[in-house]
Nucleic acid binder design. Structure first.
Lengths: 134, 134
DNA sequence: TCTTTCTCCTATTGACATAGTAGGTTAAAG
DNA sequence: CTTTAACCTACTATGTCAATAGGAGAAAGA
């Protein structure tokens, strides 16, 4: 299940794509438009900055800006950054400890196929597809 | 992310399909074969009984039996029973409180499509496809 | 009948994640 | 040099996960 962090982050990215007119977009404005506490958004946007998806500008006239064009962001990378993983089961996570049943596991192919399905869907989908054009 | 409950339940169902020879299969045997604590499996199997996926028989010679043929169980119904939902986001759960952004939500179609994708994949897949034939 | 072998039931627990809140400090523009 | 905004550290309530513990009740075989 995708948490608020992943869902809110996506809405922030969409908001940035919709409202950035060359100028940085202040978090306060995003919080108001989206109806999400600014304090909580700070945590989320920090992750987006650390993940190199957006850039922050301090001071008056500051705010956040996208680093690429909306069509160059996949939904998958946004969500995966926030959630840590898209894997449907623990054993398919990147840092998963090796499962002793790995070689004989009957259910593994099922989870792998599901993982692939979700991954493909979310990485093929671009941010630009969710942006309401003004 | 699918929890141990869902994954273990699936393994129990597979174990039942593989080892049931007209006789009930004791939980002790399943626990040993699968390397899962019998105590924990009791919780899981109780959910399977309540969900009418298996039947329990008390007393000596007792154990658990499938109520249908393996090809008549979809993986989806097993996992969904254990997890409560397959929905990727809270607002798509059956008992979800109505979201005030429902009508205008830009991300909703994305989650709906993802939900459909996962649902279709897991419901089309049958238990019989995971059973090792002796 | 009595013992064994099972299922079935209630309660508890440690660890961790989620979804925030609170209160400040630093950076930059005007 | 004041305003505005990002940035940083810490804290906390609540809930879920993944079990464990200790039995009671049901049914079959000796």
């Amino acid at each position: 299940m995708i948490s608020t962090k992943g869902r809110y982050a996506l809405r922030v990215m969409i908001d940035l794509a919709e409202n950035e007119k060359g100028q940085p977009v202040p978090l306060k404005d995003i919080a108001e438009r989206q109806g999400i506490s600014k304090k909580y958004l700070e945590i989320i946007v920090k992750d987006l900055v650390d993940g190199k998806l957006v850039k922050g500008a301090s001071g008056k006239g500051g705010g956040y800006v996208l680093l690429r064009k909306p069509e160059e962001y996949s939904i998958g990378e946004i969500v995966e950054l926030m959630e840590g993983t898209l894997a449907p089961v623990a054993c398919l996570q990147k840092d998963a400890e090796e499962c002793p049943r790995y070689a004989s596991c009957v259910t593994l192919p099922l989870w792998q196929e599901l993982d692939q399905l979700v991954h493909d869907y979310l990485y093929q989908k671009k941010l630009s597809e969710l942006v309401r054009k003004a």
